[in-house]
Every structure is written in C-alpha cells, then in structure tokens.
Write a protein that binds this DNA or RNA. Structure first.
Lengths: 344, 344
DNA sequence: GGCGAAATCCAAAGCGGTTTGGATGACCGT
DNA sequence: ACGGTCATCCAAACCGCTTTGGATTTCGCC
C-alpha cells in the first residue's frame, strides 16, 4: 500500500527545497556531500522515484525508443523480430530507456511514426526490415526523428545509421561451399525478395554461381515468407522434378527444418543425399549448436544486432550532430551435419 | 521540417483560450459546434497532437501498458510471447494505449515492476508465464498496479483477472484420442513443469491415462524448454528404448517438429509408425493449417488471448472497482496427418 | 577586520497539457 | 425593461519535475 511520494513531499520531509533535492539525486555538484547523502537515504526510505512523465516533460526527452511494427512484418519475420527486440531491450534498460512497441496495420504505419514524433512519444525509432524500395527514412528525416536501420536502405547507406550483416557475402560463401562439394544443382529458398536482405542474399548466390560459369535455374529459386511449410512444400516439389537439386540454400532455420522434413519424407537423408545450408539467426528457441550443429549455416546473432542497434541509436540521440554510423557484421560459416559431397 | 505546434500556439492562431481548444478537441460539450469545427480544422492543418507526456502528467494516467519480460521467459517461450504481444498490441493501439516492454534479468524483475509503479510508467501490466509457485501478483497488489495474468495463478484464480486456455482438458482429450487409437505407450514432452500451464497439461495427461487404468511411465515423460532439439533428442532416445512409445504428446509445435525429425531419422513414418499430437499456439510463422494439417493438435490462438488480455486490462483500468474477470478458452482438437492407429 | 570567491541552497519560471471556477453575453418570459 | 438561464469562453491553478538566476553563508587571505 506504499503511497508514492513526489518530489515536494520528499523535500518537505528533508526541510530542503525541491531544487536541492533534485540536484542531489541527479548528481549535480552544487550540493554538499552530507546533504546529498541525507537526501539519498530519505529517498530510499520513502521509495521515491521521479515521475517519468513529469521528468520527460521538463527535460524534453521521452527516454523511450519506439519500434513500430506493421502487421506484414510480424507476420513475416516474427521470431527474428522478437530476438532483435530482446537485444535492443537490454541496451535500453541498461541506459534507463523504455521500449515502446506499436503494432499497426500497414496502412497506418506512416501515421504511427507521425504520432511518435508529434506527441513526442519517443526520442528515436528503429526501422525494421527495410525493403528494396524503402521510403520510411525520408519520412523520419522530415519528422526530425533519429533512427537506426536494422538492415540497409539501398541508396541511402551513407546518409543513414544502420547495422546489417553481410548478406551477399554470406550467401556467396555458402554457395561456394556447396560448389566445392561438387553440387551443381542448388536450390535457393529465399525470403521475400522485395526486402533488401533477401535481394542481397540472392545476389550473393547468383554471383557465386556466375563465378563458376553457372547460370541460376529459375525453377530452383523461390521467394516467400520464411515459414516451415514453405520449406517443406518447396523442397517436396523440387525433389520431385527431373534433375532435382542436390543442395538447398535456405534463408531461415525455420524453412530449413521444413526442407529437412521433406527430405525425410522422400526417404532421403540430409547431409548425404541432399545438402542443406541455412542462414541461422541464432534464435534462442531454435538452437543449432552442439559440437557439430545440425545444420551447416551462415550464422549471425540477430540479438547482438539488436543490442548494437540500440547503442547506435542512443549515441545518435546523445549527440545529434554526429555523423551516421554503420555496423557491418560478418556472418560465420559453420559446418554442420547437413552438408556433404554431392551424391554420385 | 514540420515544426510541431503546441496547444498555446494553436490557441493563439485561433484567438481562443487553451481551455476552449482543449475542450473542443477532447469532445467536451461546452463549446459551440462552429468553434469546434474551426479548432479541428486548424489542428489538422497545423498537425497538432497533444504531447503525450504533458497530457498524462495532467490526467494522471500514463496511457500505457507494461510488459516486463525476464530473460528466462523469453529464452523459454520466445515466439509464443511475441504472438501474444502482437495481439495485445492491437488492442492497445485500438484504444490509444502504448505498449512498453521491459527486458530484465530475472533478478531485477521485482524492481522493474516497482519502477513501473513508482515512476508511473504504465497504468497496468500483464503477467506472463505464471509459475506453479507464483508471487508476482502479490507484489502488484501491494503496488496497486492493475494487472491481468496470461495463464492462471494457482490458488489465486478468484482474486485475479486472467485469461487461459483449458490446458488440462485439452491434454486429457488429446490423450484420450491416442488411447482410442490403441496407443498404450504414450510419451509426454512437456514444457517446464514449474510453469502452471505445463503442470496442468501433465495433470490432464495423467488423468486420462488413469481413467483407463494406465499408469504414466516416468521414462516417457520429460519437461524442458520447448526447443526443436529438445523434441528431436528426446524422441531419439525414447524410440531407442525397449518398448518405445508409439505416440508422442508434445507441448509445442516447435518441439513437435523436432520429434518428427527424429522419427524420420529412425526411418519411421509419422502418422503410421509413430503418432504425434502437439499443442498448436497458432503461431503465424508456423502454420499448421490446410485441409488436413500436418500435425494433429490441440489449438488455441495465443494471439487472440493477447487481444483479450488487453481488453480485460483496459476494462480494469477504466473501472477499477469491477470484480476480477476470467476468460477460460477452449482448445480445439484438430485431426491432422500425424496420428493414426497404434501399429501392430 | 574586511572583501571577494566558493560553496550551498532556494524561489520561481518553465515544460504542455487538463480542469476548476468564474466572467460575458445572448436569449427568454413577463 | 429586467432578473434569470444557458451557451460560450477564459484566466489561472495544477500535474511533478528541471533549471535559471539569485540569495545567503562560509572561508581563505591580505
């Protein structure tokens, strides 16, 4: 039943002015060590904590970061998003910031950002899942709302702060690995290619093929939401073709699991009959570790990306004049049980 | 570059007092239709939106709901949590509320709640993943912070508002189905049983067995975080036993996928050699639909639960004196491809 | 002993809204 | 023509904090 105290009551109890108490608690120098101690003790005893609304009204900063997540996104990359959020959230709480999440229809996305800006709900936002044809950054610049991109906005790399993994490179390396193992017919089960990350992965794939004089076969390339059935169904169909693929390059563990299921259903064995390489976002509920991971993968922790993105953004907010920063993460290529030499 | 206006500027532009403008915008009656219209138009034109901090300082309500999520939880039920959040988030935005998420170490969970209360960051919170031995509700009562439980707190059902599915009943029915199909050795791959939901599911399982005079075999019962490898490894081990199970009852799609993988790896066929029933939270990235779903399952949409939980909580906040409400959702039992008569 | 600097502390003015308690007219019936 | 009611609108207080600009005291030093 702890009746919460406010600054005035606290200062009255101490026979001090609100000014002094505020300064004592916020570490300003013009207050004697002894009073500071007295204040701290009384505050502790009374369980005083400054009202966050009042404080941010007075200081002008909301001490919060916004994430607006349109339905299409969280339909699409659900768990990846959450893992990112978890990382970012840790950074925020470490710095005393709140994370506010807004779930909106795609149609209301713009107005969601406008509200964040005009109502001063947050000091900055994160852009999730940039598209090949992205536009949100323009709105945010216009709104004067600091932001960091998780991913990259094609054409705006220099003028925005972002954190991304080397998608192209990772998928090129994975493709190389498969080619080195003798695979000729490699399928690509990609994410939605209107998203920047997926477009880059495809590039990497095609470039690696081209480097060996191979042309990608459209029949072996798909692009969709990265669900489990997507992986399974696609693999089933492709494995039933004449000249089926001997290897799959998959954009997500979830779909890769689907592929593995299809392989099993056709009586084949993953890693010997059919090779699979997947990208692994290091989701906590889908561990792919152990001495020899189940899936050979390109791995990059999306949670780590979240932590770093948060840091980038908080830095931008602290120092609004600083130049845009980018973090370009390498993905590890990790050999697991799901790859082997091409059969025959 | 839209310089954001505040109430005073808006009122000056209109030659009206702030009072009148505020009242006009908030729908109070003591303002003429014509001025109200004039105000609305000017506000629209200038892109005015009340500063959320100032407003909640003045009104005393934060217009925000808090979700504190300790690391252990989001390690454990990652995607389920997100899906719930998505549902709740929709409810919140429909009512103009914000959702603020706090990621904390388990050790700081209590202080996270205290801060929400003392700094007035949110008007209410949701309790996620109640344990068999739960305590958070006591803290929240003491803090006078309205809350809704996603799940149930054993022993506090009557005094708290909650939304939960009928875990016991669902798992009893699923077990019955397997028994009807002639299965005698049924394995239970449960979630962590210090969580209320998992404890109930186990109860349902055991009761259904007992009703047919069967005793549960401890060697066929496990309890852990519901990851994919957990399902696979457990199934591999159990299938290698003497007198292996002919059916698996699994607490999560993710683990069930692991079980299916194990089944395939042992050269068996799901649905004929080995039956699987899983609980399906209807996660958007793990669709289990189609005319005949892959997995036979007990299904209950956790996203719907989120929506409803949000509504319950907002109602509580709007009417603090109302009695606690509970929503007890039925889970559908849906026959898919993963079950069949016991072999032999 | 006196004077300026340094150390402490405070009153009051914001921050941007909501809300209370009137003021001002317009309109009405008689 | 006049008191009374209603419809409108406003000035000012308040929410709880930060911060500016001084006031007061203490202290070192010549």
């Amino acid at each position: 039943m702890s009746k919460s105290v406010n600054l005035r009551e606290l200062s009255q109890r101490l026979n001090l002015s609100q000014t002094t108490v505020s300064r004592a608690l916020n570490g300003y120098p013009e207050v004697s060590p002894s009073t500071r101690k007295r204040v701290a003790e009384m505050a502790e005893k009374l369980g005083y904590a400054p009202n966050s609304r009042a404080r941010s009204l007075a200081t002008g900063c909301a001490m919060a970061i916004g994430h607006v997540i349109p339905r299409s996104i969280h339909e699409m990359m659900n768990p990846i998003f959450l893992e990112f959020i978890a990382g970012a959230g840790e950074t925020y709480s470490r710095h005393g910031y709140d994370m506010i999440i807004t779930v909106v229809d795609d149609a209301n996305e713009e107005s969601a950002y406008r509200e964040i800006a005009s109502r001063k709900k947050a000091d900055g936002v994160i852009i999730h899942g940039p598209a090949v044809n992205e536009h949100r950054h323009k709105l945010l610049k216009e709104l004067n709302l600091p932001f960091v991109v998780h991913g990259r906005i094609p054409g705006a790399e220099a003028e925005t702060s972002w954190i991304d993994m080397k998608n192209r490179r990772a998928f090129a390396r994975a493709t190389d690995l498969l080619l080195d193992l003798g695979h000729k017919r490699i399928a690509l089960l990609n994410g939605l290619e209107h998203m920047d990350f997926a477009a880059r992965r495809r590039q990497g794939f095609e470039e690696a093929l081209a480097a060996r004089g191979l042309a990608p076969d459209p029949a072996l390339m798909r692009s969709a939401d990265m669900t489990e059935p997507y992986g399974c169904d696609s693999a089933m169909e492709m494995l039933a073709m004449d000249g089926p693929p001997t290897a799959f390059l998959v954009s997500s563990m979830i779909s890769a699991i689907g592929v593995a299921r299809a392989v099993g259903q056709r009586g084949l064995r993953t890693g010997t009959d059919v090779s699979i390489i997947t990208h692994d976002d290091a989701l906590s509920f889908l561990p792919n570790s152990g001495e020899v991971p189940i899936f050979t993968c390109t791995r990059s922790s999306v949670r780590y990306a979240g932590e770093k993105a948060g840091e980038l953004l908080l830095n931008m907010i602290a120092d609004p004049l600083s130049a845009p920063t980018a973090l370009h993460l390498d993905a590890e290529l990790i050999i697991g049980q799901s790859t082997g030499p091409a059969p025959k």
